[in-house]
Simulated assay, not measured.
Amino acid sequence: MKPVVCAALGLFSLLSPAFAAPQPLDLDAVNKSEWSAEGGNEKEISPLLIKAQVLLDRARFSPGVIDGRKGENLQNAIEAFEKARGLKPDGALDEELWRKLNEASAEPALIAYTIRDEDVKGPFVKVPDKLEEQASLDRLGYSSPEELLAERFHMDQDLLKALNPGKRFDEAGASIVVANVEAKAEPGKQPEKVAKIEIVKSERVLRALAKDGSVMAVYPASIGSEEKPAPSGSHTVRAVAPNPNYTYNPEYGFKGVKAKEKFEIKPGPNNPVGSTWIDLSVESFGIHGTPEPEKVGKVYSQGCVRLTNWDVEELSKMVEKGTPVAFLD
């Protein structure tokens, strides 16, 4: 912050939210966050927004990556939640929305987690940027324990580190603070099957609908690309493939890919289609995960419908062969 040059400016810097000192960022600060008119307007990571994102995630109105910051994915998730709960759909984090979110779940937003042996044993890999070079790897695994843990708890890696200053993530037995995203359904209860999927291109979201037309889940999505635009009309789910291979076809003509022959990339969370592929009745088109969850919902895709790995894994458990899928402009 620039030095205060006069008393009036000094007073303004104390009163204006834009110049307020960063709030404490720890488990208690987030779990005890309460709505206020100025809440969530900070330039830094906001405890209030972390809590809101976790609550939306647990209600299956996904904000994408939990990062504690304002953004289009969070606004879309709020608006979808408001529509589903009969509130004014303005995408604003207001007092009524806050009350409804907290009514949906009494579990804390952040919890302590003890790092396990399987979290740190690897193997971890350095994944090349070029698709042709990725084809030489035996598996497209995580690049580090931080990436593995951040994805498991639907978090941005920067937020994971900010909540755990000075902590190492490669030591089994260490205690860290993470988003409590697993407190959703009753233990052992399988989610209801989706009756229909709607992919809304203009809003960059995927909606999962129940038999009565109510919204079961909403996920941010990157939809199609210049090289491989999304289709229109009605289609169906053909199959679900967890841990898929990815086959590149030179007919796609992706920028930066010079290969003239088809090649295959092995499975893993950093595979170009992520951890899960939901095959659609459109040749070579599906709903899938991504190695770059922070880019989901942005104008970024190599074709198809791209969700975060955790969102597509959740959706894959709610669909079956023949589930209708409608692409809406």
Rank of each mutant, 00 (worst) to 15 (best):
P267T: 06
S275H: 01
K266E: 14
K258T: 15
K295C: 08
G289R: 01
I278L: 04
P272R: 05
V296L: 00
G286F: 06
G297P: 04
G274S: 03
N270Q: 09
I287F: 09
P272T: 03
V257C: 08
T276H: 07
S275I: 00
G256I: 11
E264P: 05
T290K: 02
K255Y: 13
T276M: 09
L280C: 07
G268C: 07
F285C: 12
G297Q: 05
K262P: 09
E292W: 14
K295V: 08
N271G: 01
K260F: 05
W277K: 02
V282H: 12
I278Q: 02
K260L: 08
T276W: 03
P272W: 03
I287L: 11
G274D: 00
F263H: 04
G286I: 04
E294V: 11
G286A: 09
F263K: 01
P267I: 05
G286Y: 06
E292Y: 14
E294S: 14
I287M: 10
P272M: 07
G297C: 06
G268K: 03
G289Y: 00
D279W: 10
P269K: 07
K260N: 11
N270Y: 07
G289A: 02
D279K: 10
K295M: 14
K258F: 11
S281W: 15
G268R: 03
S275G: 02
H288L: 09
G268P: 05
S275W: 00
F285T: 10
S284I: 11
P293A: 04
K262S: 12
T276I: 10
S284A: 15
F285I: 12
N271T: 02
